[in-house]
């Protein structure tokens, strides 16, 4: 059986005033039906551009230069805009970080819901409206009939994100791309939304691509995780393996730089020195070598490949690929 989504070696570039920049460089992954894949990384690592590449929403300056994306075995890279439109919202839909700006302020909640329902499900007015109300109820909005006639500014951030989820799921997509869906929300509201996403995932069997910088959210939601750094996948594993036994020094650093609520030791927090390199000026060799405490000459000269070290556990690091015994403990110590 084919995987639901296959992303193969895609490279996404943007034309800018200062020349072309590569945001996503040779990213591959697969997603099975019903699976939740977490994509983690810091700002500028290419996680959002990866999702926009799948949706073909790169704008006029962005394009996929090479690689292929297949949905249900069908190639969707290079599809005409009209064909892509039929896919967006019905087979793949997306929720964005900012619920304040992703709803249109001049249309009612109802009309925004009904728009995609009548377009993709070909329902008549009355039925479309009923389906819309049903969706609002499903995402936990009380008084859905009244909310249908409200404008977005009347709703709180949490309510708006619920509406976004209702719109995204209204046409029963096989894949939901959630780009930092709870980053703009308060902790208690975040808990509500994550809870809702879990419930809907069980009911509908939708596969989720969850993009976030929050390792807590990933630990809570994902089956499998991809860690991205500077436009590349640096590690991939199932969620338990990744948290129990991270292999890439970057992942190790990220894990140890989160202040844990149950930690006793409150001396110094591990931190990764330096900052993410700019896209226009990527370091040679391994892109993490400028910030890696274990970097040696080979790392700055030769780019490591992404290799599978154990089943389903891929990593892009020379040390992890056998160059250095016991580097994990050393890395942990060095970040302190």
């Amino acid at each position: 059986m084919n995987d639901l989504l296959e992303v193969e070696e895609i490279e996404t570039v943007f034309r800018t005033e200062r020349g072309e920049v590569t945001s996503v460089d040779g990213v591959s992954f697969r997603l099975k039906a019903g699976e939740t894949l977490g994509i983690v990384g810091e700002s500028g690592c290419g996680k959002s551009v990866t999702s926009l590449s799948i949706m073909s929403l790169l704008g006029k300056n962005g394009s996929i230069r090479r690689g292929e994306i297949r949905l249900n075995g069908r190639k969707i890279t290079g599809l005409a805009e009209s064909a892509m439109r039929r896919i967006r919202g019905s087979e793949v839909s997306m929720i964005f970080q900012d619920p304040m700006t992703s709803l249109n302020p001049v249309f009612t909640i109802g009309s925004q819901l009904i728009e995609s329902i009548s377009l993709h499900l070909k329902l008549k007015n009355r039925q479309a409206r009923d389906h819309a109300i049903d969706m609002l109820r499903k995402v936990g909005i009380s008084r859905p009939e009244e909310i249908m006639d409200e404008y977005p500014h009347k709703l709180s951030g949490g309510m708006r994100q619920r509406v976004m989820i209702a719109i995204a799921l209204s046409c029963k997509p096989k894949l939901l791309i959630a780009d930092e869906p709870t980053t703009a929300l308060d902790v208690t509201i975040q808990a509500q939304i994550l809870d809702l996403m879990k419930k809907l995932r069980e009911e509908t069997g939708t596969a989720i691509m969850l993009i976030t910088h929050d390792l807590g959210v990933v630990a809570e939601m994902a089956d499998r995780v991809i860690v991205m750094y500077a436009g590349q996948v640096v590690e991939e594993a199932d969620v338990f393996t990744l948290f129990d036994k991270p292999l890439h020094p970057y992942t190790i650093g990220l894990m140890s730089s989160i202040p844990h609520l149950d930690a006793d030791d409150d001396e110094t927090l591990a931190s990764i020195p330096g900052t993410v390199p700019p896209l226009q000026n990527m370091p040679s060799g391994c892109r993490f070598h400028t910030r890696c405490p274990l970097a040696r000459e080979k790392c700055s000269a030769l780019a490591p490949p992404l290799l599978e070290m154990a089943e389903g556990h891929r990593v892009r690091c020379w040390a992890a690929q056998g160059d250095m015994e016991g580097y994990e403990t050393q890395a942990k110590g060095e970040f302190l």
Partner: peptide
């Protein structure tokens, strides 16, 4: 405290109070 997502997948099944 309870709503804060814990970066430990082994604790995902824990009892939670969602307000």
């Amino acid at each position: 405290l309870n709503a804060y997502p814990v970066p430990n997948p082994h604790l995902r099944g824990r009892e939670k109070i969602v307000v």
